[in-house]
């Protein structure tokens, strides 16, 4: 291979004048995390509402939940981001569209909302499955005690369902982190974007990608470790899942 390795490159100043190349990548990592967390909050909120809708006895609620999930699941995330970023402002009334286009941080908000809604469909599916996996008698017992449907979900079904789906939620959160990289296409300079920028400035393509790869791996390790800790913390003494 006639590729010229230069691992010192990370400590050389980058041409944007914002410190070294390493600083550049770290700022990308920070933006990746910030975007992923914002998107995750959106995914959890919307996913929970839709997930609950899918388990209600009402046919209409179930149908709404089904349509929501199918809508977000059957289009590539990239296309969805384009719809939010390029198409939505044009379809809105002129003033609102203009405001959207001139919004500072538009790529960040578009990515957070776009990835968040995309992931919310998957959270909804997980939560609905978690609720459905609880014994039917749990809901009946809560109902028989006089709890309303809302109270039954709030105090009985959801606390158990969230515990059960904690492992799949961990991978969905990691998917959220990974999916923020798609936002490079709407101009979000997150970790992958910064690695790409570094490659273009310095021509040290493999060093740049290696560093980004290591950072993604670290994020994975931190999240998985953190979630294991959380799983242990909320585990119920004596309770074995699936029993």
């Amino acid at each position: 291979m006639n590729y010229h390795w230069n691992w010192q490159i990370f400590f050389e100043p980058n041409p944007t004048g914002s410190g070294t190349y390493l600083d550049m990548l770290l700022s990308g990592l920070a933006l990746t995390i910030k975007t992923a967390l914002t998107a995750w909050i959106i995914a959890l909120v919307f996913g929970s509402v839709v997930g609950v809708l899918r388990t209600l006895p009402s046919k209409v609620a179930g149908w709404i939940g089904f349509c929501y999930v199918e809508f977000f699941r059957n289009m590539p995330l990239l296309v969805q981001l384009f719809l939010w970023f390029f198409v939505l402002p044009e379809l809105l009334p002129r003033a609102a569209g203009l405001w959207l286009k001139q919004m500072p941080n538009a790529p960040f908000w578009t990515a957070s909302i776009g990835v968040g809604l995309f992931m919310s469909a998957r959270v909804a599916v997980q939560l609905a499955a978690g609720i459905a996996s609880l014994p039917r008698g749990q809901k009946q017992a809560a109902t028989a005690l006089g709890l309303t449907t809302a109270q039954t979900y709030r105090y009985v079904l959801l606390p158990m369902a969230y515990r059960i789906i904690l492992p799949p939620l961990t991978s969905e959160f990691l998917n959220t982190v990974k999916n923020t990289a798609v936002a490079i296409t709407i101009g979000l300079i997150e970790l992958t974007g910064q690695a790409r920028a570094m490659q273009e400035f310095s021509f040290q393509v493999f060093e740049a990608f290696t560093a980004a790869t290591i950072m993604y791996l670290l994020v994975n390790i931190v999240v998985v470790t953190g979630m294991r800790f959380l799983e242990r913390k909320v585990a119920i003494p004596g309770y074995i899942a699936g029993k």
Binding site: P135, G137, Q138, Q140, A141, A142, T143, A144, L145, G146, Y155, V156, P159, M160, R163, I236, Y239
Partner: peptide, 18 residues
């Protein structure tokens, strides 16, 4: 309100595990 006035005991206990 009505259900709160009658107690019910189930075959599989249905205590809330959490």
């Amino acid at each position: 309100k009505l259900r709160a006035r009658v107690g019910m005991v189930f075959q599989h206990f249905e205590l809330f595990p959490h």
